[in-house]
Nucleic acid binder design. Structure first.
Lengths: 150, 150
DNA sequence: TATTGTTATACTCTATAACTATA
DNA sequence: TATAGTTATAGAGTATAACAATA
């Protein structure tokens, strides 16, 4: 059984936004630790890459620097991230996640992953394995090249 | 080999936004037929469900009625959708895709699917089949219940 | 009273253009 | 001159609250 490439692409195009919407709703629903998806991603990236520059965050997220700058502004205003001078290059910025940011990031990750796990729990083991493998492949296809070794 | 549910959930949470970002950039990049993802989805839904009410679109997209109302406003302002009275129930609205809307919807679908197909073309047939199957399963898990027969 | 939809208001996301500061 | 980042501006996405019209 061969799969039609164009048809697969259309299904992906249908399903990805549906899952995304579910993730978005779930994240926004936890009042007080409520994060938007971009906020969550930026926090997670900076947490994994302590001292990132704005430009690195922008590249990771596929956003322009101005968009990223404002996104970071919001996180700083909420006390979840900190922006400091880079010791070696004064044009640069060193971003870090604050203690509170880490707390919220972990709670949000935990909560959202639990939600997704709950959804997936109705899928039998074979199909879960299929999903797992597909996700790995899709990550290799779509993740920015510079982030693929990990 | 058994997969850990929580771990699968985290990977899904990492990868879905990455693919979504790719789709978003691609859609917005075609100047002139440029649609946002929500605009694209609303147009596609109304095209498949001629004469939908606002409430049906909102339910399909997982949005509140006010958000949906504004989304539709934008599409109408661009001449891609039309809003008419419902003959039987005067509270309701009948939404339809205009000729121009259909043209743009098709071009956008075609363009974005081609883009995704191109990305997937580097994946071998076995793994493409795995992705296809996973997408089917994920659709069953995440799609609104009232839309699963099709 | 319940349903359908809109308006008002307020954030966030995102981009392009123009700018500042540093290298 | 090139790089890192911000500010200005603008349109779209999204929600809650308040409202109007119809059933």
């Amino acid at each position: 059984m061969t799969v039609d490439l164009e048809e697969s692409a259309r299904k992906l195009l249908e399903v990805v936004p549906i899952i995304m919407q579910a993730i978005r709703s779930e994240m926004r629903s936890r009042r007080s630790l409520d994060l938007t998806v971009p906020q969550f991603r930026a926090l997670a990236f900076v947490n994994r890459n302590e001292g990132s520059s704005l430009w690195e965050v922008a590249r990771h997220m596929g956003l322009t620097p101005p968009s990223t700058s404002r996104l970071v502004d919001g996180l700083i205003a909420r006390g979840l991230m900190a922006r400091n001078d880079h010791p070696a290059d004064r044009r640069r910025v060193r971003l870090t996640v604050t203690g509170q940011g880490l707390t919220i990031l972990e709670a949000s990750t935990e909560g959202t992953a639990s939600y997704l796990a709950d959804k997936l729990s109705g899928v039998d083991a074979d199909n879960r394995e299929v999903i797992d493998k597909a996700v790995e492949t899709l990550r290799a296809v779509f993740a920015p090249a510079h982030e693929l070794e990990r």
